[in-house]
């Protein structure tokens, strides 16, 4: 029982990271119907920004938490700018072209960032500095570290903030309108270009947060770290129903829990296989994902 609860915590920590990254996929898909394959690499960039920033900033403020928050905020800002650049120079010029063109550009961009990352940051793994000194929290027989708790709380806070933004603010409403029907939104006077750019910036900032939160718990970072996480987060987004914010969170948690349970009680060899098997099974029965709405085609 004790170890089951511990596995539950492990799964939720892993799942919350997938959820953060999945949110970026789902938001961009929501407004552009584009799967931004370079999103996983933005997550990697976030971790590297955090790595270099913490070298500069660590110890500059009186509190470790403030250090960590500053590093995270600046990395999120950095990645938001990367997201904006990506949108402006890679995706906007081809927005009217076929969707396949955009998809190929996304894949190309992803490879470009990965290889440029290996060139600039070096292909060897780097070790993320300890931003927050570790201390243990004992909960009955469960073992938690303060880092795990902080990571989880931060992830949840970010998700709640995003939710408030999308469902309570004017800009969020505009974003939903663009997602619903871009042309109609434009006719209603919404600056769709600005909204799309904002979506990329927000998604990229969340990916950066994911990258840093992961690195706080697991300090090894490398330029290809975004490949697998990006793929898993994409699975999570599709699982929950791509385009649906709650779906991304749900999908991330399901995937994280499934992986941990398979590795903990089955064989870790099948860990990734199971993740993708779940995807296939769910899509067979619910092609639009768990929370996705099936689109009705007019004939």
């Amino acid at each position: 029982m004790e170890s089951f609860l511990q596995q539950l915590i492990n799964g939720i920590s892993l799942g919350s990271i997938y959820a953060l990254v999945a949110l970026g996929y789902t938001m961009v898909y929501g407004v552009l119907r584009l799967i931004n394959f370079a999103h996983g690499d933005v997550y990697m960039l976030g971790a590297y920004f955090g790595f270099y920033l913490s070298r500069i900033l660590q110890g500059r403020t009186p509190y470790h938490l403030l250090d960590a928050a500053l590093v995270m905020f600046l990395s999120m800002l950095g990645c938001a700018i990367c997201g904006l650049l990506m949108e402006r120079f890679a995706y906007r010029p081809v927005r009217r072209a076929s969707r396949l063109t955009m998809l190929i550009i996304a894949i190309g961009l992803s490879l470009l960032i990965e290889n440029a990352g290996q060139l600039i940051f070096g292909a060897n793994p780097k070790f993320f500095p300890q931003l927050i000194p570790e201390s243990h929290i004992k909960l009955g027989g469960l073992m938690l570290t303060n880092q795990q708790v902080i990571v989880l709380l931060t992830a949840v806070t970010l998700m709640i903030l995003l939710n408030l933004f999308i469902y309570r603010s004017r800009t969020g409403k505009a974003m939903r309108a663009v997602s619903f029907n871009m042309d109609a939104a434009k006719l209603m006077g919404i600056d769709t270009d600005r909204i799309i750019a904002l979506t990329f910036a927000l998604g990229s900032a969340l990916a950066a947060a994911g990258g840093i939160l992961v690195s706080i718990n697991i300090p090894g970072i490398d330029p290809l770290m975004g490949v697998m996480t990006g793929l898993k987060a994409f699975v999570a987004a599709v699982l929950g129903g791509i385009g649906n914010i709650f779906g991304a969170v749900l999908g991330g948690l399901i995937l994280g829990l499934a992986e941990v349970m398979v590795a903990g009680y089955g064989s870790s060899t099948y860990r990734d296989a199971i993740a993708f098997l779940i995807l296939i099974v769910i899509l067979l029965f619910k092609p639009a994902g768990l929370l996705g709405k099936g689109a009705v085609e007019k004939v």
């Binding site: 170890s3 596995q7 492990n10 799964g11 697991i218 941990v260 903990g264 870790s268 060899t269 860990r271």
Partner: peptide
Amino acid sequence: DVSYSQGDKDFTAQLTAIKA
């Protein structure tokens, strides 16, 4: 006797099983 795959980053699941 449990396993992981080269390139994995998260080993908490296996370690929790070992701890038990």
